[in-house]
């Protein structure tokens, strides 16, 4: 028999994986465009509602809705990017914060208007329900599935960024925008598509999150805090950093809630403040 700490660890890792999928897009877009996008989780929430609608109203199978959640979030984000974000790339942090907080507020209201303020139920496929028994520890099947997806995403991102032409363009634009332009890279296009990809991943994360943390209109803000913590602790633009930070935050949060519930979210805020004081650019940050 394994002691319960392994169960906590497992849940923490699964939760961390979820946070990773939710936040890695923001990390890349922040590192690439230096744009403080506080509406990132609004795209995640959009993905969540797309999945809920397709499953509950149109009777789609859960798994089939995941790509749709991705695409819906990606397309919406790119429309907003062209309409609004693009004009603020050179603006101050404050303007970016205000615009995107505004969008997040709007997303909360719109979601509440359409879906009400209740938590949305979701029916996951039978194969993902229940848990395996592993030396006395229940490993949730859905959580295993989540870990699998997150690892796939990580792999795809690493391969995509390291070995493809698009990845090379993104890296060049992150490193030195002016030089990238000089080399004939269409930086605008690179921005827009990276942004779409990042938001799409958030949409996927939002769909995956329903089963674990639920979905209601406040999702835009509740998880924004987590995502921002992961991104700033990990360091902007760093996939490895986001991964490590997501694990750290996921495990601390679950362990904190399990062992010292009276502290609430205190622990992760503390982790964040301490890490940032030690390394202002985050664990894997360059600057």
């Amino acid at each position: 028999m394994l002691p319960p700490i392994f169960g906590v660890l497992f849940d923490g890792i699964a939760y961390g994986m979820l946070l990773f999928v939710l936040s890695v897009g923001l990390s890349v877009t922040l590192g690439l465009m230096n744009f403080v996008n506080l509406a990132h989780c609004a795209f995640a929430m959009l993905g969540g509602y797309v999945t809920v609608t397709l499953v509950n109203i149109f009777g789609w199978p859960f798994l089939a809705t995941l790509p749709v959640a991705f695409v819906a979030a990606a397309v919406t984000s790119v429309v907003l990017e062209r309409l609004l974000y693009r004009r603020l790339y050179r603006a101050s942090d404050l303007d970016q914060v205000l615009l995107t907080i505004g969008l997040a507020f709007i997303s909360v209201s719109v979601a509440a208007y359409i879906f009400g303020t209740i938590q949305q139920p979701i029916a996951t496929p039978a194969a993902l329900r229940g848990s395996f028994d592993f030396f006395g520890i229940g490993l949730g099947k859905y959580r295993l599935f989540l870990i699998g997806i997150a690892l796939l995403v990580t792999l795809a991102m690493v391969i995509g960024l390291e070995y493809t032409r698009f990845g090379a363009q993104v890296r060049a634009s992150v490193d030195n925008q002016r030089m990238a332009r000089g080399l004939g890279i269409d930086v605008d296009w690179t921005f827009a598509s990276t942004f779409a990809l990042g938001s799409g991943l958030a949409g996927l994360g939002g769909a995956l999150a329903i089963e674990i943390v639920g979905l209601d209109p406040n999702f835009s803000f509740t998880y924004l805090v987590y995502v921002l913590i992961v991104v700033s602790v990990g360091g902007l633009g760093s996939i490895a950093g986001s991964f490590a930070a997501a694990m750290l935050i996921g495990v601390s949060d679950i362990a904190g809630k399990y062992y010292v519930p009276e502290l609430g979210a205190f622990l992760i805020y503390l982790v964040m403040v301490v890490v940032l004081m030690w390394k202002p650019a985050g664990l894997f940050g360059k600057r």
């Binding site: 505004g102 209201s109 208007y113």
Partner: peptide, 18 residues
């Protein structure tokens, strides 16, 4: 309801910034 109040705040923020 407060959530609709924040809809207008959101619109306002976007307008002010833009």
């Amino acid at each position: 309801a407060p959530q609709y109040w924040y809809f207008w705040i959101g619109i306002l923020l976007v307008t002010v910034v833009m």
